[in-house]
């Protein structure tokens, strides 16, 4: 059982090491990253806790609870990413429009 714990812990630790320094000035994302990773590490080390938590909220097994929460997070991440992409698209459009207007050509004007 030690092995699977190590395999699961490595990406969680790497997540913190790599992304925490990059998310400068993004307190919300930093805190949620720390939170999610910390919870993940605790559950990996003490899987029994998920079962207790599952019983508390009326779910049969801890693994099921983790799956449900994962699905919710997955969709939330999708929506956040989607709105980020739209924002990027809007910025890109503004940029290209500025360039276009600066370079507007009057062809063959009398």
């Amino acid at each position: 059982m030690i092995n699977i714990k190590i395999i699961l812990l490595i990406p969680l630790v790497l997540l913190i090491i790599f992304f925490l320094p990059r998310l400068r000035n993004k307190t919300f994302y930093r805190l949620s990253l720390i939170g999610v990773s910390a919870v993940g590490i605790v559950f990996v080390l003490f899987p029994g806790l998920t079962d207790q938590l599952a019983h508390l909220v009326g779910v049969g097994r801890g693994a099921d609870l983790v799956t449900y929460i994962f699905i919710v997070f997955f969709f939330m991440a999708g929506i956040i990413l989607y709105s980020k992409i739209r924002k990027l698209e809007a910025d890109q459009t503004e940029l290209i429009r500025k360039i276009t207007l600066q370079r507007a050509e009057k062809l063959n004007q009398p």
Partner: peptide, 23 residues
């Protein structure tokens, strides 16, 4: 469009008809 007296605007990336109209 060669030879026609027009204003020619060129998007450096394809953005779509709505974006072209707005430009």
């Amino acid at each position: 469009l060669h030879g026609l007296p027009i204003h020619y605007l060129h998007h450096v990336m394809n953005l779509g008809q709505g974006a072209a109209l707005q430009t």
